[in-house]
Amino acid sequence: MSEAEVQLEVGSVPRTISIGVRTREHEKAEAAVQKIEAVNFNFYYGKFKALNNVTMSVRERYITALIGPSGCGKSTLLRAINRMNDTITGTRGEGAILVNGENVYAADADPIMLRRRIGMVFQRPNPFPKSIRDNVAYGLKIAGWPRNEIDDRIEQSLRQAALWDEVKDRLKKSGMGLSGGQQQRLCIARAIAPRPEVILMDEPCSALDPISTIKIEETMIELRREYTIVIVTHNMQQAARVSNETAYMLMNPQTRAGELVEFGETEQIFTNPRDKRTEDYISGRFG
């Protein structure tokens, strides 16, 4: 149950990868808190319904992966958690997404305070055109951290993002001068600096080379000790490698709205999917 191997066919090259290896230590935390819950959540871009009736939950200090083919609404769901979709005009959410039991889509919820509690890492590395130090300090300054703690916190978060050794001599240099992988780890450091409760990652490795990808994945596994992470990924191996639980989403061919097909422990999803469509996707027959 705890360790399993599965034959995955990706492209034409059959690979054997191990999945679910870290589940055992998490069995102890089985009673973990439900950090985020989506309850009958619908999402609209104007008149277009992008998410239909999604209900799922994310446990504290778990890595939860959202997988599915393009256009299935997984990024929309992720960006709904910290209400990043608000920046697009004409969007609205129905139903509830609860973070710590509070509905972020409540009429009087404050998206800015919400985002200060939830860090986000984006598809493409997007450091500010500022120095490395200022990049990491940005969230701290917004959250009003005491001045004397900021430098320590910058070092801590850069260490956690496994970037400290590479940049400690050039904190004053621009963040744009780093390589792609380093930039993405800088973005992770920036996201974790204000100690968010949740980190959302939107295909964080899609613009990176395999070596940088591995480094980022190692960072994620490291971060799992402290943070709850939700990750959207196109890469099924990545979901298998890093996540504890996986949600498979799919666009409903009739309504073109994204729906949650199956949600469960990563191991179960990859080895023993309950839904036929999940199985098709996992085994590479579709998507």
Partner: peptide, 11 residues
Amino acid sequence: MASQAEPLSGL
């Protein structure tokens, strides 16, 4: 942390 943070809504 979560317990110390002010509530998201209602304020």
